[in-house]
Nucleic acid binder design. Structure first.
Length: 360
DNA sequence: AAAGGGCTCAACCGCACATTG
DNA sequence: TCAATGTGCGGTTGAGCCCTT
């Protein structure tokens, strides 16, 4: 048996709100508040509307300090960055943009911002759905898999990191098998940032170079990680996201630290994500220290440092549970910019090489 | 001027979670 | 503990507007 409807559908009005209805609702709420019960409100206010409809109308249109109209570049940047990090959690994104509603942001993203980004990266238009593949169904995270370092309390499908040595001098990607995610990062020789080598991403035999537009990339060409995340956002990725970076980074415990983290996760259920706290801890047996914490606490998202005391670092993420093999795709990410900052919080930027690939 | 195709965005729908009794 | 109910959220829809032909 399904649940009872929230109101008598036959006797409630639907469709656009008239100015009279708006005035009634506004006046009632300003006088009496919502009374903590939206379902009962329309009857009290003399409206032939469903309570949910009243709530929506109030929240999205009538309540004070709502802002409509053009989004600023700064708002664009925030939306892109948050979307890349947390996906379509519009209410969380809206919380960062005073006066904007989740509905507005959702509409703006779907109708304008996504297209705007795709225009900047024209080749993406042919590859909008490449991540994840429609048939890809990640298996549940296997907590009992051997030799994994990662612990998580989330509902995420999360790849278990494991570290091995790979040839850091090689330009070729170390490919082991389709169940592995390989990440090879050479951080031993900083070189100046270059507009031409920030990020490129390939799928199968297709190369997509987003750097053509990097000088105009929503005004933050100097942050390759934001670009990277934004790039994912533009490509329509919401799940199976391979992320480099975050919108917020804390200082490290000393020494140089990689201020952005790399992790791979699968967002199985956005609803659950909102309430989950994720904590990863990666230990490293080689001569580097690496700690990664990624916490989602309520609406606060914090990504702490991936600490690297020393140079060359090569590691590989291995997932112990195999994705489906019959829909193998490959995404390679060539990441030539890592943003570092010093332990005292004063930011020092180095650009270093890195690359990874993701198979599923 | 008319047709029609695309776009926008307010509103609806269904689902999941939270709360209450 | 469980069912009923309320709330919040994200995905989707469709009326109306705009632009192109």
């Amino acid at each position: 048996m399904g649940r009872a409807p929230c109101c008598d559908k036959a006797s409630v009005k639907k469709g656009p709100w008239s100015p009279e209805e708006d005035a009634k609702l506004k006046e009632f709420i300003e006088k009496f508040g919502t009374g903590g019960n939206w379902i009962a409100l329309p009857q009290k206010a003399g409206l032939k509307r469903c309570g949910k409809s009243c709530r929506l109308r109030w929240l999205n249109y009538l309540r004070p300090n709502i802002r409509h109209g053009e989004f600023s570049d700064e708002e664009d940047r925030i939306i892109c960055s948050l979307y890349a990090n947390i996906g379509s959690r519009w209410s969380v994104i809206a919380a960062q943009l005073p006066g904007r509603t989740d509905n507005d942001i959702k509409n703006y993203w779907n109708t304008k911002l996504k297209k705007k980004l795709l225009t900047m990266v024209p080749s993406l238009q042919q590859k909008q759905t490449f991540f994840p593949s429609p048939t890809f169904q990640p298996p549940p995270y296997d907590h009992h898999a051997p030799d994994h370092f990662l612990t998580t309390s989330s509902s995420f499908y999360t790849y278990t990191p494991n570290f091995i040595n790979v040839d850091s001098t090689s330009n070729s990607l170390p490919v082991h098998d389709i169940n592995h995610i390989n990440v090879a990062a050479d951080i031993s020789s900083p070189h100046p940032p270059s507009a031409n080598n920030l990020i490129s991403l390939m799928r199968s035999d297709t190369t997509i170079d987003v750097n053509d537009n990097c000088n105009n990339y929503l005004g933050f060409p100097d942050d390759p990680h934001t670009m990277c995340n934004t790039y994912y956002a533009a490509s329509g990725m919401k799940e199976g996201m391979l992320m480099f970076g975050s919108t917020a980074c804390s200082s490290s415990e000393g020494g140089s630290s990689l201020s952005h983290v790399s992790h791979v996760n699968y967002n199985k259920d956005h609803h659950q994500y909102h309430h989950q706290k994720n904590q990863y801890q990666i230990k490293q047996e080689v001569d580097h220290q690496m700690t990664l914490h990624d916490q989602v606490l309520g609406d606060q998202i914090q990504t702490q440092s991936l600490m690297v005391n020393q140079k060359p670092k090569e590691f590989m993420f291995t997932n112990h549970v195999s994705p489906l093999h019959n829909d193998l795709e490959e995404v390679k990410l060539n990441l030539n910019g890592y943003l570092f900052h010093d332990g005292d919080g004063s930011k020092t930027t180095h650009y270093q090489k890195g690359m990874c690939s993701y198979f599923y």
